[in-house]
Design a protein around this nucleic acid. Structure first.
Length: 291
DNA sequence: AACTACTCCTGGAGGC
DNA sequence: TGCCTCCAGGAGTAGT
């Protein structure tokens, strides 16, 4: 999924709904979707209280009582929906199946029951996501091993930090570089395309070819795109097509549509196996990257 | 260092 | 309707 804005909005929604509550039951229907650390099983979750919910890149980390932690990664198609008294009170991740659909869905792999009777459903039609129950220390070590880069929502994510990232990977092309979680945390296919469109930078530009003004523009575009999603609602792209009823995202999932900035046609290319959308007219300069 | 191909899965969309 | 192909908001691994 779920990229940074989806995970962050989910974190906020769960923060206000499940913190302070205890797990009273867990139903794992597909074993590989729930991984337990050494000497742990799903039943160790019982009576653990949710103390804190944080995010590292696209990882969602639930800090629990008893020195435990529960980590979710939704990958391409994971979603979490919290239902209380028959109503969806928190939801996030991949929007298929729709958040209001009856649960459990046939692709609901894990159901968590909380002490107020609410249920948290972990659904993933493609089974690429996972959750992991670990000792807190192991969770910290696991996340450290991911070498997750600076978080664009962090106050410390300055133009200078971005410039440092670009300098370390001078020859890398912008799109794959920004998708690399070790460079910058949380960006995925949609928001990278959107940030590059917003910055008017070609996805094939070499990182080292940007002048200081372009670096500043890219920084503003990354932060601005993510904040826009958090403020105005996350991008809705289903099966590669952006929601035609909205103007966000502007480029991703809109091949052939007029660019909102210059009215040129949005193009789609394949880059590292991923669909990449951009406006050839106002995101020029791929060839200058080679020089 | 950087890039490509392949892998894990299911399901929706479109062509015929 | 069926059957086929392609594509999908992630990321790890292996090979060049």
């Amino acid at each position: 999924m779920p990229e940074l804005p989806e995970v962050e909005s989910l974190r906020r929604a769960l923060q206000s709904t499940i913190v302070g509550h205890r797990f009273v039951g867990v139903d794992v229907r597909l074993a590989k979707m729930f991984r337990a650390g050494e000497w742990l099983t799903a039943s160790d979750l019982r009576s653990a209280r949710v103390e804190q919910i944080s995010r590292r890149g696209k990882h969602l980390l639930l800090t629990l009582s008893g020195g435990l932690a529960l980590i979710f990664h939704l990958r391409l198609a994971g979603q979490l929906v919290l239902v209380r008294d028959g109503e969806v009170v928190a939801a996030g991740g991949h929007p298929v199946p729709a958040f209001g659909s009856p649960l459990p869905h046939r692709s609901t792999h894990v159901t968590f029951e909380l002490d107020d009777g609410s249920r948290l459903y972990f659904t993933d039609i493609r089974q690429f996501g996972f959750c992991r129950l670990m000792r807190l220390g192991d969770a910290a070590r696991y996340l450290a091993d991911q070498e997750i880069g600076p978080d664009p929502l962090d106050a410390g994510f300055s133009v200078e930090v971005l410039a440092g990232v670009l300098t370390r990977r001078q020859k890398a092309r912008l799109k794959p570089l920004l998708l690399d979680q070790r460079s910058i945390a949380g960006l995925g296919n949609i928001y990278v395309d959107e940030a590059l469109w917003r910055a008017a930078l070609h996805p094939l530009r070499a990182a080292g070819s940007l002048d200081p003004d372009e670096v500043r523009r890219l920084h503003e575009a990354i932060v601005g795109t993510l904040q826009h999603a958090l403020t105005h609602g996350v991008a809705r792209v289903i099966n590669g097509r952006a929601d035609p009823a909205r103007d966000f995202p502007a480029a991703h999932g809109r091949e052939g549509d007029p660019c909102p900035r210059c009215r040129g046609a949005i193009a789609r290319i394949r880059l590292g196996g991923r669909s990449t959308y951009f406006c050839p007219a106002c995101q020029p300069g791929a060839t200058s990257a080679a020089s």
